[in-house]
Design a protein around this nucleic acid. Sequence first.
DNA 1: TTGTAAGCGTTATCAC
DNA 2: GTGATAACGCTTACAA
Lengths: 347, 347
Amino acid sequence: MNLTTHPAPSRATMEDVARLSGVSLKSVSRVINGEPHVSASLKAKVEAAIAELNYVPDAAARSLAGSRTFIIGLLLDNPSPHYTMKVQKGVYDAVREHQYHLRIDNVDSTVPADAFMAQLNALVRNSRCDGFVLTPPLCDNVLLLEFLDQSGIRHVSIAPTLDRSLGSGVVIDDAEAAATIARHLWDLGHREFAVLRGPAEHRAAARRRDGFIEELERLGLSEPVTEIDSGFSFEGGISAGESLLASSRRPTAIFAGNDDSAAGVMAACSKAGLRVPDDISVCGFDDSWIARSVWPYLTTVYQPIEEMSRLAVAILLRRGEPENRLYRLDFRLVVRDSTAPPPQPRS
Amino acid sequence: MNLTTHPAPSRATMEDVARLSGVSLKSVSRVINGEPHVSASLKAKVEAAIAELNYVPDAAARSLAGSRTFIIGLLLDNPSPHYTMKVQKGVYDAVREHQYHLRIDNVDSTVPADAFMAQLNALVRNSRCDGFVLTPPLCDNVLLLEFLDQSGIRHVSIAPTLDRSLGSGVVIDDAEAAATIARHLWDLGHREFAVLRGPAEHRAAARRRDGFIEELERLGLSEPVTEIDSGFSFEGGISAGESLLASSRRPTAIFAGNDDSAAGVMAACSKAGLRVPDDISVCGFDDSWIARSVWPYLTTVYQPIEEMSRLAVAILLRRGEPENRLYRLDFRLVVRDSTAPPPQPRS
DNA sequence: TTGTAAGCGTTATCAC
DNA sequence: GTGATAACGCTTACAA
């Protein structure tokens, strides 16, 4: 690298600031950390010196001497790219707002328990951070949660489903969101429904299925709702869709629990020569990127993932917060082009 | 957090290791850092003590005292989720392999130059790292590259397209990959082509277009190839597709420069009542996740993004490497279901 | 080949 | 309110 033109100016230290402002090291430290018992005049002097010297505290020295690292970790596992990127963006923005840095850590929770614990130990021992944001499915991993608690490491979960006494979390009401989908389809005139179930471990998936079916029953549906597994993947959505379309009692509306499997269902319709939404309506869940990468655009439920992520960071950084609280944010039904009245509306 | 059951054991320090093994601090340091001039017996003693104490060096102390931070930064901007997640996974794996940590940083390169520089300064001043991995479009941002060079910060680019004297990079041969697509379609019997162009800033896009058309000419195509802009987005792909399908000289094969716009083209076909690949063939580029989230699955070019990312980290960490080298990896044509012979094969 | 001593730039303790 | 002074855990001259 060519350093001759702009020699890197050696960064100013706290001592430089102290000298320039004529106060002690400790006073500078007090100002920087916003500690109480600092006179306004001293504060002003120090801040002037900081500005003049363009001083920025050194992160390494800070974490060596103190208890904070100014690093937040985001723990990821086997992520859906869309979901993960949204989470990551929200977490990143919030973290930077607080002058923190974002560290990424992947773990694989599908390995045996002892290998899993070894991964965790390696992560935690090597370099500390001030807290972890946990994403699904890790936020429901009891092994992980207990490990973090026992290690005294703060953490906040995004979309946990455990009835938990293990840390705080940020959620939406999955059941009510699914009920909103049910009402939307009902109001369009649909009376023949199918629902795609998610993977067994995905507890939020079960809540969506329950909320959907219970709301339909409440509305007065007498026919049973057809249920079928999709694994929440595009491929699973295709095969589930093919089964449904081939069945004798073909539904007029399909609720697919997540956007990926909904896109699969739409592909199956296309293969079968059916037009969405004219012949059949399809709903997703998440409002992920794929919802606008299919044709027609998918009717789905928007989860405020970025906002949930920002809130998770805020909770993490707000010390003195109750440790086991669940924060619930609002979802929103997004009606696009994949839903319409059924082909032969009932009276 | 409940700490009563498992009180966090205070971590062993280098001094503990030195005491237990009966050597000096410096010797322990030598062993840890793999420095030369260490006798085998001393090394063995120290390593035994390290194992017994379960010692792990403290990252903060190391970076305060030394010149390394054991952090690699991944600089992201406006990312395609699929592409970014693949890069991130590759970079993460490589980084952890070297006992480093991965820090994420987003920057927005669409803002005015002075605001952009302010972002960079904030990132770099606040906490150092041992190097950055740059992703498109940042890897072609001269402002950024010059800033990093002048700050003496190492960096390696993934898929840069600049004719550069600004750092190393890892690439594939975009032109040759596009030529491979051209040959695939030609061999199927196609003679009426269209190509979707990417955004102007996306210099790799231009290379793909050039490689595609030049190869067709080399093969003996006399008809001109229809060209149209797509912006490389799904929506752009839809409108480009609609124009192409409505034109009097409808192509039998469309090369869409990236998978997203290819998916858009397929959606346009579906809207128009055309079947892929029976009526028309479509090709993408990237082999991103969306290539298997459309029906039929997309014929495309696989880029070894994870491997490119891993290599980028390796280059970054391998000091003494030539500073301005381009490393070229192999791509691979992935033939799936979106390409077939044209409906009326020519003799 | 091995060891000694002096920092690195903060925060924390405890006087004043 | 403010300020000495001692950690924090490691690396890096410089000796031996």
